[in-house]
């Protein structure tokens, strides 16, 4: 390149801009980061609040690979022996991220390679992922149909609601946990769930292929009560569905949605930089406002009315249940088998 006064001035200006990004390895490195994520609101919010700002600051292009988490998990498993993964960052729920971390397929993460980890709520920190957003499993019900309001997961077994209880197929783990809790089991003892699920099947419980299919059934008043995350209830309520939520007396299992970097990512530095941007306070607040998920960083500020809609009271927080991921992962084949063959079959 020919050295001119103009080029020297431009280089100086770029250097000054980089200095503002500290000593981070991904700053102004260029290249591309492929992000495996959900589409819809999730993908749009990432694009609007993370991807664009991160690209401008780092010079790294962000490409979203939109799909559902099961194929993403399968891709990472299939590429585990390859030198170059097709995704640099992938989003999963906490149990799936644990399964991949357990197989040593993910890059270790801490505050040294992702500085914003220092702001993450301590209970949500993991060694193989960043917690992006989180919520709780609650009971969602139509107040015009379910009266009095439910108080416990056991209310799903009330014969008065026969044929009007429905679940999303993907929520098989969470429904099994609700059944276990209602039957006297716990987050580490699923055995009572089997009989309870068979009883529920006898009561005409329905299974829907997607969140959208269940939403449509709730709207048409075919379904009166379900169990889902509070965040989903918040979104549906905002969308006009006749729903209220209640924290079950047995507890509110936590779900976190996490982002991971496969060990064979083509652009590890860029991917770690992207994770740092995902933990930005403003980006997290945007997810809370639109999707009703709680921020995982302590410095994110939410408008009081939104915080009230998506958070739990001090008394309800006593009922939070943190999943035992090791037990859940070990039980997963049995849970899925029972759900597929006995409950749905």
């Amino acid at each position: 390149m020919k050295i001119t006064r103009r080029n020297v001035l431009l280089a100086g200006a770029a250097g000054a801009a980089c200095a503002g990004m500290g000593r981070l390895a991904w700053a102004q490195q260029g290249g591309r980061v492929v992000v495996g994520t959900w589409g819809g609101d999730y993908g749009s919010l990432l694009r609007e609040n993370v991807d664009t700002a991160f690209s401008q600051a780092s010079g790294i292009d962000v490409v979203q690979d939109i799909g559902t988490p099961d194929p993403r998990k399968t891709k990472i498993l299939a590429e585990r022996q390859g030198r170059r993964a097709s995704m640099d960052v992938a989003f999963f729920n906490d149990t799936d991220a644990f399964l991949l971390g357990q197989q040593d397929l993910l890059t270790p993460i801490d505050a040294n390679n992702v500085p914003r980890m220092a702001e993450v709520v301590p209970q949500l920190r993991k060694a193989y992922s960043i917690p992006h957003i989180y919520s709780f499993q609650v009971i969602l019900y139509n107040p015009a149909k379910i009266d009095p309001a439910p108080t416990s997961f056991a209310d799903f077994w009330n014969p008065k609601w026969r044929g009007h209880i429905g679940f999303v197929d993907d929520m098989y783990r969470q429904v099994t946990i609700a059944a276990a809790l209602a039957g006297g089991g716990s987050i580490t003892r699923f055995d009572p769930a089997w009989d309870k699920l068979l009883e529920l099947r006898e009561l005409g419980a329905k299974v829907y292929s997607s969140n959208e299919a269940l939403a449509s059934a709730i709207k048409s008043e075919e379904i009166w009560m379900t169990t889902l995350y509070l965040s989903r209830g918040y979104m549906w309520k905002q969308g006009g569905l006749p729903l209220e939520h209640v924290v079950a007396s047995e507890g509110a299992p936590i779900v976190a949605f996490e982002a991971v970097v496969p060990k064979n990512s083509r652009n590890q530095e860029g991917a770690l930089g992207y994770l740092n941007a995902v933990l930005g306070a403003q980006a997290q607040a945007a997810f809370a406002k639109k999707m009703g998920y709680l921020p995982t960083v302590q410095d994110a500020v939410l408008p009081p009315e939104i915080a009230k809609s998506i958070s739990l009271s001090a008394e309800q927080q006593q009922r939070l249940l943190v999943p035992d991921y090791d037990y859940s992962a070990r039980m997963n084949p049995q849970v899925l088998d029972f759900w597929t063959k006995q409950f749905k079959g």
Partner: peptide
């Protein structure tokens, strides 16, 4: 729907959902 199962979806479920 989720309650109707043929062989090809069952193969997919084992590969992708149950791993």
């Amino acid at each position: 729907g989720p309650q109707f199962k043929m062989m090809a979806p069952a193969v997919y479920d084992q590969f992708v959902i149950a791993n």
